[in-house]
Design a protein around this nucleic acid. Structure first.
Lengths: 223, 223
DNA sequence: ACCTGAACACCGTTCAAGT
DNA sequence: ACCTGAACACCGTTCAAGT
């Protein structure tokens, strides 16, 4: 029953928040569902399959807003922010997602939204895909490090400067930069990276030939 | 003894190649070292500490080439390629790295190389850090997905088109783009993303004010 | 300083059996 | 169709004891 599968995934995500990825076990999950551990194996072939379903479920609310005729920059910025938010919403969310490779509905919808917006702006399918994935990789990497930072430094902030000081001036650029690495700054940092990628896109944008092809396609489809 | 610690990490990385991250256990590692499992706890406080050491060891050969006066684009391109290669060198390398947050020597040297090159080009410490991390996040995200792809699709290539076909035309942009997603193309895809980020940097580059400040600093230090 | 034996409190998964 | 009991082959980690 589809309802039961969904309920298991929901319970698994709640358990994830409580225990972290390390503490997420089939036995504890079964207990949370008032069931014996082997029952889960009727619904999922194994733990990896459950983690795949969890990864896809993380993106449930991503890329739901209609794009309409929005500029590709707007679509990409919003998509990036939504993906970050979705991965951040659960403890170890980025690590769960990073451990899987799912062609699930939510993942595909997100990719379709981004790549589609780029293609509609006149870029070729090839360039759109590459640019879109560049953005997605950036977001994934960002949140992975963001959550690792929260786990490690969030638990013991004083330790950070001490660890760096241990190398005694061997890394001056980092020391100069680290003062700009504050917790309050995370959103700005994230947006700056997104802007950097969008900015790179501007130059690389549709070539003369790609513009002509896009125009031709539009005319042919009668719009 | 530092020698023993290093030997453990080397053995752990070799075991990782054989078993993957899932199969990497303290007991198997101890066996590979002809020792009982509890012995490892004299050298490392626990498995997470071992994984931290492994993550840092992955970057052993990264950012070793002297930068000299190289342009920042050259430094960044090389650093990105070296990081990708290092994470790719071991099975599940990116996942091991993504699970940790280590202020280790190798990680710091890589960050110093990138951020230092950007600062020397005239960018502020703040902008250099943000741009540098954008590149690093991209590389990390790229290799995570690259290795996930190798695990999943590499094992069963025929399955891919079938999985996508299942959604029957709901994701046309992806279908159009997927033909450009070949195994042979991975290096090109990677470089394209790096170029995109470098390209975005060009516009964002040193402002007039930042150029003046850099010039002033250079003059003051007598160069 | 470095390692072992024995034990504790867990794991994921299988499978026959129940309803 | 869905769940349980019992078991198998493992885990990470602790700790007293050895050398």
């Amino acid at each position: 029953m589809a309802l039961e599968r969904t309920a298991i995934v929901v319970a698994a995500l709640d358990l994830l928040d409580q225990t972290g990825l390390e503490g997420l076990t089939m036995r504890k999950l079964a207990e949370a569902l008032n069931v014996q551990a082997p029952s889960l194996y009727w619904h999922f072939p194994g733990k990896p399959a459950l983690l795949d379903a969890m990864a896809n479920a993380l993106l449930e609310d991503v890329a739901r807003t209609p794009v309409d005729g929005a500029e590709h920059q707007v679509v990409l910025r919003r998509s990036a922010a939504e993906l970050r938010r979705a991965l951040q919403a659960r403890r170890d969310g980025a690590k769960v997602y990073a451990g899987t490779f799912v062609m699930g509905e939510n993942v595909l919808r997100l990719a379709e939204t981004i790549i589609g917006a780029l293609m509609r702006s006149g870029m070729s399918a090839r360039t759109s895909m590459r640019a879109g994935f560049t953005l997605l990789y950036y977001v994934l990497g960002f949140v992975i490090e963001e959550q690792a930072w929260q786990r490690q430094v969030g638990a013991d902030p004083a330790n950070l400067a001490a660890q760096l000081a241990q190398w005694g001036g061997r890394f001056p650029a980092i020391e100069a930069a680290l003062s700009h690495f504050s917790d309050a700054d995370q959103d700005d940092r994230f947006n700056h990276g997104v802007d950097l990628i969008l900015n790179g896109l501007g130059q690389h944008g549709p070539s003369e030939r790609e513009r002509m092809e896009a125009l031709f396609r539009a005319l042919k489809s009668g719009r």
